[in-house]
Design a protein around this nucleic acid. Structure first.
Lengths: 332, 332
DNA sequence: GTGAAAGCGCTAACAA
DNA sequence: TTGTTAGCGCTTTCAC
């Protein structure tokens, strides 16, 4: 028995079995138009008995308007993106839409390819992250007619709908917090900011705020790869080897910061007396650590949810800043 | 300008612009059939110039065979599932397929609904987790003609393809490890095992192994909700309040175990001298903690990848056990 | 090597 | 309230 031997039921089969016309079955299935309670019940009964599943491919083609939304995220390794996906998928589901996902690995060219292949499904909307894209991406998106939502960043120009927070403002708040606590010899441990443009914006915002206070980063350590606990751990070790006199370190995100925290605990470096740590994202693991990490909590699930809602809301283009919350924690 | 004003280009537009027939354009686009190098180039040129994106909805309907694979996961909160998704999406992408995802929240009825709505897209395959499903799920799946892959568990009967590891064996190995280290007063901290059947199987396997050594769990604490660091932290606190004499605790997974670890660090409970901890999954955060957690490393990304490969491989039904690795760590 | 035409399984007028 | 029918935009014979 090959796989091809499954000629699934068609609308006409149901119509025949129920003794009605195809359009009647279609009406029953979509709860539209008027159908007598009697036939409605009969059709439903046949559908259930035969286990008929309508072919949405055909339905979509005929109705010109798919119930699909494409979502491209740069990574699934950092829990931030699954959170975003969770918010989006939940909301989409509520509205009767389905999510098609793609992972770009923080590669603009991959993102462009993924967007192109999603557009082939004529999605109602495409959700992507950030405001920086390869040239081809906005072009394709614009001419597709699909709604576009850019998530997680509001520092710049959006294509259509933008839902996120200001990375710059978050970083500035972080810098002010550290300065306010009296730290002056501040270092940075981060990952590839050329690919993760939001992390890049945070670094820029952080440095700008330091500069406003007559300060500058004493040292920085950049990991050539995506953020991870291991990269943060190793990064802090290297940074301290080069600049032992630091009194605080700003990390590109919580994954990196937790790595740094683990390094300090393992080496017996007193936090925050000897060294203060500051992260970004407000992950569970950071907030529930024995010493809660000083960090910025971002409303990721809400951003996904709101982004999905707006994508299907038929409202004008807009930028929604969902803000962030500074968590003082105990590491700074 | 309304959204409807985007009558995207059709194959016939390209055909007209290139001065060829529709079928010729179709052949060029799919690299099938024979087309002269000259016309091929011309068509390509027109396609690029006009920015034409073929409508896969129509293509799929005509060709009877979609390049879509449905994936239903119980959660996105636990990094285990994004890992699985990452492996699967990467492999699918390589083979020219797209992933449609659904999140069931560990609810069998939701899973059944999600499977039904994915089947409406006539996916080439459906990937789900675990071997336990609502009655309707296998029925629908079987009559759909789609390949089915069940992931993360090999302890039981599969519907078609199964890729995972033995939760029972992993738990038995964990028990043996603890017993071999001399621990005898062992407790358990877990989450809702009725919904997370794999966690349930691990608990059963763990207890069975203890029994074989004439032991039994001294106490257990079950959190009425999904696993999380917070649940593990609180769970261990409650467990120790009730059974202070424990010398080791087995957790339902690493999220829970990390929570327990944080509790011990915060309370100054010496690990493993005063209390040993054992987890499951081998998450980064567990392996890179100052005291690496004793746990079981599961090949999640590989499972996703292999599952996707087999789903599209046109090979007979099979069960693939990708095994696990016991990590001794420093907490037991 | 290329084109014409018949579907793929639905939806949405339009009739009845 | 219900049935008939013409597409939706492709792919795929089948001629040429």
């Amino acid at each position: 028995m090959t796989r091809k031997d499954f000629p699934s039921l068609r609308l006409s089969d149901i119509a025949a079995a129920a003794g009605v016309g195809e359009s009647t079955v279609s009406r029953v299935l979509r709860n539209s138009g008027s159908v007598s309670e009697e036939t409605r019940a009969r059709v439903r009964q046949v559908v259930a008995a035969l286990g008929y599943v309508p072919n949405r491919i055909a339905g979509t083609l005929a109705a010109a308007g798919s119930r699909v939304v494409g979502i491209v995220v740069p990574s699934l390794t950092n829990i931030v993106f699954p959170d975003l996906l969770r918010g989006a998928a939940g909301q989409l589901d509520l509205m009767g839409y389905q999510a098609v996902i793609g992972v770009s690995d923080y590669d603009g060219a991959r993102e462009a390819e993924l967007v192109a292949s999603m557009l082939a499904w004529r999605p109602a909307a495409v959700m992507i992250t950030g405001l920086e894209h390869e040239r081809a991406t906005p072009d394709r998106l614009r001419s597709s007619g699909a709604r576009v939502v850019e998530m997680l960043d509001v520092d710049g120009e959006g294509l259509d709908i933008v839902v996120g927070y200001s990375n710059r403002a978050a970083a500035e708040a972080s810098a002010r917090h550290l300065i306010g606590r009296g730290y002056r010899r501040i270092g940075y441990v981060g990952h590839e900011i050329s690919r993760d443009t939001r992390a890049g914006k945070r670094l820029a915002g952080f440095e700008a705020e330091l500069a406003r206070h007559g300060l500058a980063l004493v040292a920085r350590e950049l990991h050539a790869g995506p953020s991870s606990i291991g990269a943060g751990r190793d990064g802090l070790e290297r940074l301290l080897a080069r600049a032992p006199a630091l009194d605080a370190v700003y990390f590109s995100n919580d994954d990196m910061a937790i790595g740094g925290y683990f390094h300090c605990v393992a080496r017996g470096i007193a936090i925050p007396e000897r060294l203060a740590l500051f992260g970004f994202n407000g992950l569970d693991v950071a907030r529930l650590a024995p010493q809660p990490l000083a960090t910025i909590l971002t409303p990721r699930v809400e951003i996904g949810r709101e982004a999905a809602r707006l994508a299907l809301a038929d409202e004008p283009a807009a930028t929604v800043d969902l803000g962030f919350i500074l968590i003082e924690g105990a590491t700074a």
